[in-house]
Design a protein around this nucleic acid. Structure first.
Lengths: 293, 293
DNA sequence: CATTATATTTCATTATTTGAAATATAATGT
DNA sequence: ACATTATATTTCAAATAATGAAATATAATG
């Protein structure tokens, strides 16, 4: 009957789909199943009628949904009350990959500033790969970055957004894409991919799985640069869609549809567990927490 | 942020006393301390200012108290809604020691009947010592009884009331109490104590601790009988105060003030963990749960 | 009939919570 | 001044609960 469980329940009541909710909330379907089972046991009521094909709220589930909504709303209000009591001062240092900053940072920062106008924000943007290093070196209190495959134990991560990796091709020079039977010829079409970092790992893994040796035309540091290179017709590239959407070169490239499905990027707020003791950090953390609610 | 933690917090906010709340809520002070610490960590706010001598709510604590009250009230409403959906039928068997039944049973039963009028109650009263046996033998779904010193692992207990053990003396024949220097002479004053059961254990333990061999005039089965014997002037007796208060012989005896402090009786509802799956049992369980809230 | 989509179990691991006892600290009584 | 009492907190080992990965179950779809 934890706040977290109420949130999970409510999300599921919205999607009516265990797999989708578990993905969106970053827990395994197994854990989600049992969260619901526990709620049901505690209430002594079935909340969802479910089989492999369908999930539906029972009347008791509906009553519990209203309860959850009320409690979560009251919870948000409590937070407002508490944060308005606490006028924080001092400085908060935030590091943000350029990739990560698009679309997310503004929302978060404007909420934070409203709640704590006298906290000075020290913001640095830079290479996504450096984000976690900055944290561990205590060079930044918090970072906004993509969730790596392996998060160090002393860090905690809170997802804020998700964005798929997309392949892009120049609008001019369509002949740059070479075809084999059955689709694109990945071994000959020139590729422009990141020099290092998470999306590089993902594409490398895919090529390895496919037993395919790509024709890497150019390795580039920085997603923005990749878009430029692609727009100039040097090859096809791989970037997080969120970066593409903000790019001034958006209208010079197109997204390729028939490309491998790579695991999407999960962008979120990350900090050292210990740093959460810092009230300014804690404050941003719980603001982020409310955003997903 | 569990319902249970909210209840604990709220109780503490009322008593402002860790030891008292932990006793009343049947957890160790250590656990209570850490429940509060966890709440404080989760909220990032101090809820109580405390030292060894005093406990006081902070402003944040007050805000959280209001939150707790609201949530617990909403929680009770949810239960009302759910139970009004579920019209239960069938039978519920309840065993109740005579001791235990005074004062508690009527409240509980009238609430239960209001919520589930078509459940037939099979009620049996009898010796308190048999209560747990009845449960284990599946002879009763639930019992109301005193909490024994050691509760079998497969049972769960929910406290409902507490009553001290009191010594009583006849109003007539005051000379029956013999005095030594410093107070009553426990070795010579004739005693009327229970033949067996929890209060017998308690008094035996006390005599052992005091290195004192009591003058047991009579061993009696059944607290009601003890009161009768005492009222007739046969000696002094030991009974739970709750039993005394309901006795027709109340005005023929008096409570002795300067007597050893024995651990009070904790009267409550008890059932097998597994039996909670039975919806009628579960229903009474959660009604009892609401009584203490 | 194989494949796919989906929820649930199982099992081993990890994390959390607990009680008992020790500790710390301030007030009170002698 | 010093032992005693009352009280909250820590420490430590043990018990409980929650988790993810993989296996399983089940029904729909191609």
């Amino acid at each position: 009957m934890d706040i977290r469980n109420l949130k999970l329940f409510r999300h599921l009541a919205g999607t009516l789909h265990f797999a989708r909710t578990s993905q969106a909330c970053y827990i395994t379907p197994s854990a989600l199943t049992r969260v619901i089972q526990r709620l049901e046991a505690e209430l002594g009521e079935t909340l969802f009628i479910r089989d492999n094909r369908s999930v539906a709220l029972t009347p008791a589930g509906l009553a519990f949904k209203k309860y959850s909504d009320d409690v979560l709303q009251r919870w948000a209000r409590l937070h407002d009350e508490l944060s308005s009591e606490n006028i924080l001062e001092g400085e908060l240092s935030l590091y943000c990959s350029v990739t990560a900053s698009y679309g997310i940072l503004p929302d978060l920062m404007s909420l934070y500033r409203k709640a704590h106008p006298s906290v000075k924000i020290h913001l640095e943007t830079g290479d996504a790969a450096k984000a976690l290093i900055k944290l561990s070196a205590q060079d930044a209190d918090m970072v906004i970055a993509a969730l790596p495959d392996l998060l160090p134990k002393d860090l905690i991560f809170q997802p804020l957004a998700q964005t798929p990796l997309v392949f892009i091709a120049p609008l001019q020079d369509p002949e740059i894409i070479l075809h084999a039977q059955g689709g694109m010829d990945w071994e000959r079409t020139p590729l422009i991919i990141p020099d290092h970092g998470l999306s590089r790992d993902r594409i490398d893994k895919w090529f390895a799985k496919e037993n395919c040796i790509p024709n890497i035309y150019s390795r580039v540091a920085g997603n923005e640069a990749i878009i430029v290179m692609v727009s100039l017709g040097f090859g096809i590239g791989l970037v997080p869609r969120m970066v593409l959407e903000e790019s001034p070169f958006l209208n010079r490239v197109r997204i390729l549809e028939e490309t491998p499905e790579l695991q999407p990027f999960v962008i979120g707020l990350c900090t050292r567990k210990k740093t959460l003791a810092n009230p300014r950090v804690k404050a941003l953390w719980s603001i982020a927490d409310k955003i997903i609610v």
